[in-house]
């Protein structure tokens, strides 16, 4: 059985809000190391991989593997009934067909309980190959989100070029074209505004900006984002969590 407690419901609420628009029905695999979710988005262009390590919970117990088959939007709907600073407990018996969520306020004089019906979902699992990425960029999550949002005014696609000079985001559409270039830099005051580039060889890939804007909804989860790219392969975009991560594998657009 699974019993997992978070000191603040907001920790789970904001993660589910960040991924709910991309996903539908998915399995959350729970075991002694924590909760893991891997699911293709509806377009099959992005694979979302979420890991919530057991040490991120104030109490965690999962003696045998439990699979929570649910619709992520139903989970988001139920989580909206929790206040951000409520103590949140997830409970599910082995082979149960429901997930019990309880929300307690810190003075413990109010407790809500919701039972979310679980489903049997046979979802396609993709094997994520170990990839040596030619380029790794660590930058501010908010700056990436803002840069891509600006370029989405010009086009539905962005080209990202990384070389030793820096990282350039560019887009071209009917009304014209635009680009933003960032040099590697270290910001001593705000480390998150640093641009750190590790490069084994230059790389340039193009991506759909609509899906990218869904991905950067995770900017609320982490102050920095790690972008990894290599020619002809999906990009890996990672937002680190206090004990885990939200990772996206994003298929590029290819010159036909």
């Amino acid at each position: 059985m699974l019993e997992a407690k978070l000191d603040a419901a907001s920790q789970l609420k904001k993660i589910v809000e960040a991924i709910r628009d991309m996903l539908g029905e998915c399995n959350i695999e729970c075991n002694e190391t924590g909760l893991a979710l891997q699911s293709l988005d509806k377009s099959h262009i992005v694979l979302v991989s979420l890991l919530l390590g057991s040490d991120g919970f104030s109490e965690y117990r999962c003696d045998r593997g439990v699979t929570l088959g649910l619709n992520i939007n139903s989970l988001a709907t139920v989580l909206r009934c929790a206040n951000n600073d409520d103590i949140l407990t997830l409970r599910s018996e082995d082979r149960a067909n429901e997930l019990i969520l309880t929300f307690e306020d810190s003075k413990a004089d109010r407790i809500s309980e919701f039972n979310l019906r679980l489903m049997d979902i046979d979802q396609e699992y993709l094997a994520i190959p170990e990839t040596e990425y030619a380029a790794t960029v660590v930058m501010s999550a908010a700056v990436l989100q803002r840069t891509l949002r600006d370029l989405s005014a010009l086009s539905e696609a962005v080209t990202i070029e990384i070389d030793k000079e820096g990282i350039r985001f560019s887009a071209e559409g009917d009304l014209g074209k635009g680009s933003t270039h960032f040099k590697p830099c270290v910001d001593m005051e705000n480390a998150e505004n640093s641009i750190n580039i590790t490069l084994s060889e230059p790389v340039s890939l193009s991506f759909n900006l609509q899906y990218f804007s869904n991905i950067t909804k995770a900017s609320s989860l982490s102050s920095t984002v790690t972008l990894q790219m290599t020619a002809g392969m999906p990009a890996q975009i990672e937002y680190k969590l206090p004990s885990g991560h939200v990772r996206y594998y994003f298929a590029p657009k290819i010159e036909d």
Binding site: L40, I45, L126, P129, N208, P234, A251, I254
Partner: peptide, 14 residues
């Protein structure tokens, strides 16, 4: 025009 390809082209289902 760039062609969008799906992840299935890169990652095979296990």
């Amino acid at each position: 025009e760039n062609l969008q390809i799906s992840l299935g082209e890169f990652f095979d289902s296990s």
